[in-house]
């Protein structure tokens, strides 16, 4: 029992070390290619501005909500697609020799979640600047953005890994991602509708538990299934 405990502690410590190194590597790579990062932010801001110009002003809260999450969805597919589609075959082989598949996929997931979170918060700021802020319960909405970004990005990271095996095809990425992301997206839209209406947290508890458990399920499935995608 004691050996097992020490063993698992050692495992966790090794894993954390590996994870932090891999995440640092992701951030470093992103920082060296700042144009890609800037491109993503520009994509979001430009999309919001296009919506502003074409809609002028949205009066309906439903439309406001749907439009916001559609922008986030497209931005996140663009942002997450490159997590695996841009990795060259040689570099993947190099990672293969260095790290465990679990640490690799977790690092990608965590990195994408952080990126997605920043992206959607910036999107929310610009969106409320141009289209007006209709949210009555702001803390609830921010919480939805946090949980939603984690869920969407972790699922899309895995889909990106799958699509990268199918000849790096971006169309495949979109086809695979859209239907499978629907459960998460529907929950998010329902929840944020409630946040816009200004309902209390306790009222939305069941939807939150669904969203939270979906996040956990997706991350666990990625952790378990990625090793099979890893080896060619």
């Amino acid at each position: 029992m004691f050996v097992l405990l020490v063993d698992s502690q050692l495992f966790v410590r090794c894993m954390l070390k590996e994870l932090s190194a891999l995440i640092q590597k992701e951030i470093l790579l992103e920082w060296r290619q700042r144009y890609a990062l800037g491109g993503m932010f520009l994509y979001v801001v430009a999309t919001v501005f296009v919506c502003f110009l074409s809609f002028k002003n949205v009066i309906d809260a439903n439309a406001w909500n749907a439009l916001f999450w559609i922008i986030i969805l497209f931005a996140s597919i663009n942002a997450s697609a490159k997590s695996f589609l841009q990795e060259s075959r040689g570099r993947l082989l190099y990672y293969y020799t260095l790290s465990s598949p679990q640490a690799f996929v977790l690092s990608k997931t965590i990195y994408n979640a952080i990126l997605m979170l920043i992206l959607s918060l910036i999107c929310f700021c610009f969106y409320s600047l141009f289209m007006g802020n209709m949210v009555k319960n702001l803390p609830l909405f921010v919480l939805i953005i946090v949980l939603g970004s984690i869920g969407i990005s972790s699922l899309l990271t895995m889909i990106s890994a799958i699509a990268s095996k199918a000849n790096n095809n971006f169309t495949i990425m979109a086809i695979l991602a859209f239907p499978i992301i629907m459960p998460i997206l529907i929950t998010i839209i329902k929840l944020s509708q409630n946040a816009i209406d200004g309902t209390d947290f306790s009222y939305n508890l069941k939807y939150f538990s669904v969203l939270f458990s979906l996040d956990i399920i997706v991350i666990i499935l990625s952790y378990l299934l990625f090793p099979y995608l890893w080896k060619d």
Binding site: L155, M158, I159, I162, K165, A166, L176, P179, I180, M182, P183, I217, L221, L225, Y228, L229
Partner: peptide
């Protein structure tokens, strides 16, 4: 392998 991984996700959803 790839389609089996996707199948698990599809079934869960």
């Amino acid at each position: 392998k790839v389609s089996a991984v996707y199948n698990v996700f599809a079934y869960v959803m």
